[in-house]
Structure formats: structure tokens, C-alpha cells
Design a binder for these strands. Sequence first.
DNA 1: TGCTTGACAGAAG
DNA 2: CCTTCTGCCAAGC
Length: 112
Amino acid sequence: MRHYPDRMTVEEAKAFQNDVLDIVGQIPRGKVTTYGMIATLAGWPSHARMVGRTLRYTPGAEKLPCHRVVNIAGRTAPGWSQHRPLLEQEGVIFKPNGHVDMLRHLWEPEIM
DNA sequence: TGCTTGACAGAAG
DNA sequence: CCTTCTGCCAAGC
């Protein structure tokens, strides 16, 4: 029995990262999803922060549509100036307040 | 071993 | 709406 109930083992962390990359690769053009959603789909609801870390530091993530991942408020990643332009380029509409119009673009993943 | 750092989320002011 | 704080938890030092 683990001292910390939901702490990841090395194997689980590796699997989690694979799942995250796989899920991001499935986001359709013109749609977006959130860090928390991806973490939940991967089976670790409390690991939203690790999703961001994975996308940022995993080599090869650049070739995935990781720009289609925003936070739950529709805010783009701080320090990544190209984030918004990349989304607008594929038709994503931003509200006057600078946030993605989530109601319009949030991706509804299929049940598997 | 212990403290700090985030591409987060939610609540508070 | 924006800033700050708290909870969260793997990684880095």
C-alpha cells in the first residue's frame, strides 16, 4: 500500500505521458481541450500540471497539435507568443477578453 | 531529504 | 476582469 494513494510510479508516469501525447494527437483542427480534461482522460484527474509539463518538455511534442490545449478558462499558455496565432490560423475565435470561445470550440472526445 | 518551480484549477478579493 | 492564494504533484537542485 502506497503512502501517498495516487502518486505515480515510474511506469505509470511513462504510460501517462504516452496517453497525453496520444490524446493531444486526436484533437481535431479548429477544436481545443484543457489540461485537466486530458489528465482525466488519461486516468489521473489531479495531474493537470503534469500535462503541461509533458507537452512543454517532451521532445517530439512540437509535431503534435499541442496549441489546441488551453486552460479551462480558455487562456493561452503564458510565455508562448505563438499560441494564439496558431489557433486563430485554424479558425478558432477569441473573445474580446483574449480567451478562446470555449463553448464554441471545446472538443468532445469520443467514448472508448 | 527538503525546498522550489510550474504550458493547472478553483476560489477569493 | 485581473491578481493572488491554496491545493495539487512530478521534477530539479
